[in-house]
Design a binder for these strands. Structure first.
Lengths: 111, 111
DNA sequence: TTACTATATGTCATATATGACATAGTTTCA
DNA sequence: TGAAACTATGTCATATATGACATATAGTAA
């Protein structure tokens, strides 16, 4: 239950691998972070393609602009549930979700 | 923020579609639930293939047997983060995650 | 400059998830 | 039978996520 070792470093342009050792993250932890970052990017992409502002998207999600900003920034306080459900609200298909998953999960040894 | 309309009904053999109307779930909400149920099934599959008990898996996850049981039962109190990170700890690949995603997300109209 | 729009960041009260525990039910094997 | 291993379910204290708000920063146009 010490999943809070994450860092906004990773969201701010750091390669996860380089931070992983520094923070002592397990492979699975690192993979999860990469996955969520990938979903974050997908969300921003989709929103922008639709020409929506964060405020407009927040309204559709019954959330707030600040939370949308945090979703897109890969903030550690954002759950995968929120990211995925937001993508679904934006009409993301199973293929698109799967694609984001693939590009977000690095290879790691089986535990 | 009224996502708590879920039901264990869905986990207990009910088709999501039939419950969706009853609970007044949106398409995106229903898709998210289906997705999580699919991940639940994947988790049980993987665990059993490895010949692990819930207790043993719980130890690897630094969690408890009861939580593992809830994960596999599709309990509403279980987050997608926990499901995915558990699958990753069990060595699930990107392909396998993507597959679970695909089979879990039903088609729904773009919003 | 000012005013406006969009996005980012920090904080907080409340909602939800989590691990742990107790206990009940189930399966398996003598 | 019965005990042992496994799984399900309910509860709770604590941890984490959430929406909302304030405020800051960045860009744009007048």
């Amino acid at each position: 239950m010490k999943k809070s070792k994450r860092a906004k470093l990773t969201a701010s342009g750091w390669a996860v691998g380089s931070v992983q050792d520094f923070l002592g993250l397990s492979d699975a932890d690192a993979a999860l972070i990469e996955l969520k970052l990938s979903l974050s990017r997908s969300l921003r992409d989709r929103r922008q393609r639709r020409g929506l502002s964060q405020v407009e998207l927040a309204k559709r999600l019954r959330s707030s602009q600040s939370r949308v900003a945090k979703m897109e920034a890969g903030d550690p306080s954002v759950s995968m549930d929120l990211l995925v459900s937001s993508l679904l609200v934006l009409g993301a298909s199973a293929d698109e979700l799967a694609k984001a998953i693939r590009s977000g999960v690095g290879r790691h040894a089986a535990a």
